[in-house]
Every structure is written in C-alpha cells, then in structure tokens.
Design a protein around this nucleic acid. Structure first.
Lengths: 146, 146
DNA sequence: TTCGCTATTGTAACTAGTTGCAATAAAGAG
DNA sequence: CTCTTTATTGCAACTAGTTACAATAGCGAA
C-alpha cells in the first residue's frame, strides 16, 4: 500500500497522471513474486479491470520501465518480462530446464567498475540475464560415466 | 570461403542438410562487420536469392544459433540481432546515443567463475548486452555546472 | 545415375507487439 | 463544483515474428 502511495507521489511530481490502469498494473507486479510477461500482466489485470486493453498494458509497462518503477528483462529468445523495481538483481537462467536464479547486483558491481575504467562506459543495467546450465542439468552431461 | 567449408562439414557431420538458403544467410553474416536484425538479413538475402522468404530467415537464424554458428543478442527493447560466431564478446550499448562497444569475453570470465563457485551455475552466455551511458553522453548530465 | 527418405522450404494463417488518432478523464485554476 | 488543458486510453489498423502443413529438394543407398 505504501509503495503505491510512493509511486503516486513520484508520478505527480514528474507531471504524469495517476490512472487506475497504472495502479492496477503496478499492483499486479507488486503482488507477483516473480517476473511476468505482458500477456500474463494483461490476464491478471482483466480481473481487476475488465475494460483494460492489451495495448495499454504494453504502453504502461514501457512507461513504468522508463520511470524506473519497473524493470524489464529478456528471457529466452525475444521474450520480455517485467518485474517491480526493488533491490537490484540479475538472473541466471538454465537453458536446459529454465530454472531461474536471482543474484545480487553486488556481484556485478566490480565488473561495472572495470567497464568504467577500461571503456569509460557507465553501465546501469540492473536486470541482466545470463544463460547457462544449472548444477542439476550439468550432471547428465558430465557425471554419467561412473 | 574456408569458413563456409567448415560450416558445411559441421552441418553434414551433425546430420543436417546444407541448403543454399543456409549458405546465403551464413555468407551475409560473415560479410557483415556488425550484428544484423532478421529484417536486415532478409533484405540482403533478397539480392542473392530473390525467392527466399522471411519465415525461412527467422527459422534459419534460430537454427544456426542452436548450432552455435551464429550468436543472438538482445539490443534495446525486444530487438534480437544476430552475428557470426567468432571470438566471444559482449556489448556495451549507450542507451542515450545507441553507440555500441564490443568487449572481450575475458573481462567476464572472472565473473563467470564467481557464478560457478557461488551458485553452481555454469554460465555460457557469449553475447551478453549491458546498457548504460557512453563517456560523451555522461558529460551533459554531469559536467555542465562549470 | 536414379530412387527413396525425410529435413527443409514456401505458403498462408496465425499470435505478438506497436502505433496513429479520436475520445476520455486526471488534475490544476477559478 | 465546474471548466479547461492535455496526458492517457481504447480502438483499429498496422508491423513483427511464429507455426502447421503440403511441396520441394538434399543426400545416402543401390
């Protein structure tokens, strides 16, 4: 609830409007414990607000991402998913079983400093995705000899 | 040319067919000095092979990516681009001007080792994209005081 | 070389995502 | 409370990307 109030203030102070559509979509992302793709957001929003269109969902997600209230990430080939902007974190996704692990941003902070020093680029990706194999899915390929 | 022969052998040895469509698309990616999106690949392919369809371009790019001959990367919101698989590298993209810098994989190797130790995940992303601000685009926001 | 198997392509219909524009409604002024 | 401004929405048409299925064509076998 307090998060919603905070978002309301932020929007007001930046000259944007607080609309029920935006509040519904923010609420959905806050209550989700994981990332959602636009269609999932749309489906959940239908319950709270049957008239809401998919175009508005796409536009609102992009808008909230621009405002830094929501983080967008790519998972798999082309799928964009969204998540409420909380603690900065990144994803390790197993490309075999799809299991997703969150890692703290602090693990990448040193890398970002290295980028800054060696290239001048100030990186601010807060939601980077890395693909690989989780421990379970490495096993069949490596340990089946014995 | 020798790269094409190598790809031919690889496809044969894995039981896949060597088709003119695949060769054309591989050639285009080899001759491009940068990454291309599917539409750009399609347009260039039209010259060499007018009958080629866009569906085949999408399918072939996904296929070549699966085979490890081509690398796919996300740039911007939802755009997937492709690049011939050569040296492993990653991208730093300026979200203000869009300028893209390549960085060697070696810079991320230590991070991957850290992932492996702390989570067990064996990361193999060879084409990760980081967003931020390039040195020129940082200037107006930071240095305009004096 | 010819044949047969089947991976691959092209077609066309489909789903996903975007955008222009008129209608609506948030929010400040009176 | 009412009016005015204009950001935002819904609609509908659009572009981008995917997929089912029949036709085509690699390529190994004879």
């Amino acid at each position: 609830m307090s998060e919603n109030l905070q978002c309301t203030d932020t929007l007001h102070s930046r000259g944007f409007r607080v609309t029920p559509q935006r509040m519904v979509i923010l609420r959905i992302l806050q209550e989700a414990d994981t990332h959602l793709n636009p269609t999932e957001v749309y489906q959940r929003a239908q319950h709270a607000m049957p008239g809401l269109t998919e175009a508005t969902v796409y536009r609102t997600l992009a808008f909230l991402t621009d405002q830094g209230m929501v983080l967008a990430a790519h998972i798999g080939s082309g799928q964009l998913v969204y998540e409420i902007a909380g603690h900065a974190h990144h994803h390790l996704i197993c490309r075999a079983c799809g299991y997703t692990l969150e890692i703290e941003h602090e693990l990448l902070a040193e890398l970002y400093r290295l980028f800054k020093v060696s290239t001048g680029y100030q990186i601010d990706s807060l939601h980077t995705t890395f693909f690989g194999l989780c421990p379970e899915c490495q096993a069949p390929e490596l340990n089946n000899v014995a």
